[in-house]
Simulated scan of single mutants.
Amino acid sequence: MNVVLIGYRGTGKSTVGKVVAVRLGCELLSTDTEIVKLAGQTIPQIVEQYGWEYFRDLETKMCQGLAGKDGLVLDTGGGAILRPQNVDMLKRTGKLFWLTASVETIAKRIGSDTQRPSLTGTKSFIDEIQDVLRERAPKYQAAADHVIETEGKSVSQVADEILARL
């Protein structure tokens, strides 16, 4: 079985994933990191050159490949749940944990991140986070086996919650 972390960027998936993987003695894989390795380009470069749809195609291929493995902690990109086939593949071999945080906390955590291009291209940083979360929240909710609030908790506390629910 895999532990699959879903949620908007800045909710703690990568950081918490490292701790959960160590505690379970599992390998941690990030779909975004694996896409960058496969493409030989950063995510902003991929999106600028080929567009978001192409990136989502790569993401689907990555989800398919990783879902076929067992005993992993998977840190998925925030948009992995946008395609129902990704969710179906990941659920076949994993438990999906939706990590959540407030818009303000997300903005603080990702404010200096230059490795993800804008999803809307036209809105302020805070407006984009709010709008994308509003759009994605029902999809995260539908995909999640468990919802874990990360607000005001240490990485260790979040990892403890995930392990307790396993």
Rank of each mutant, 00 (worst) to 15 (best):
T11F: 01
K13G: 00
K18F: 00
V20G: 03
C26D: 04
L29P: 00
L29S: 01
L29R: 13
T31K: 08
T31R: 10
T33P: 02
T33W: 04
I35K: 06
Q41I: 08
T42C: 11
T42F: 07
I43E: 06
Q45Y: 13
Y50A: 05
G51N: 10
W52N: 11
W52G: 05
E53W: 09
E53D: 14
Y54M: 09
F55N: 04
K61D: 07
K61C: 07
M62V: 12
M62E: 10
Q64G: 14
G65L: 13
G65V: 12
L66K: 02
G68Q: 14
D70K: 11
D75Y: 04
D75R: 02
G77D: 07
G78M: 07
I81D: 00
P84A: 13
Q85K: 12
N86A: 04
V87K: 01
V87P: 01
M89A: 13
K91R: 14
R92F: 00
T93Q: 08
K95T: 15
W98D: 03
T100W: 09
V103S: 12
V103Y: 13
V103R: 09
I106P: 00
G111D: 03
S112P: 00
R116D: 03
R116F: 02
S118R: 13
S118K: 14
L119I: 03
G121P: 11
G121N: 11
G121Q: 12
S124W: 07
F125I: 03
I126Q: 12
I126V: 14
I129S: 02
Q130H: 08
L133S: 05
R134G: 11
R134N: 15
R134M: 09
E135T: 10
K139P: 00
H146R: 12
T150K: 02
K153R: 14
V155E: 11
V155F: 06
S156L: 11
V158Y: 05
D160P: 06
E161R: 13
E161C: 14
A164Q: 12
R165Q: 08
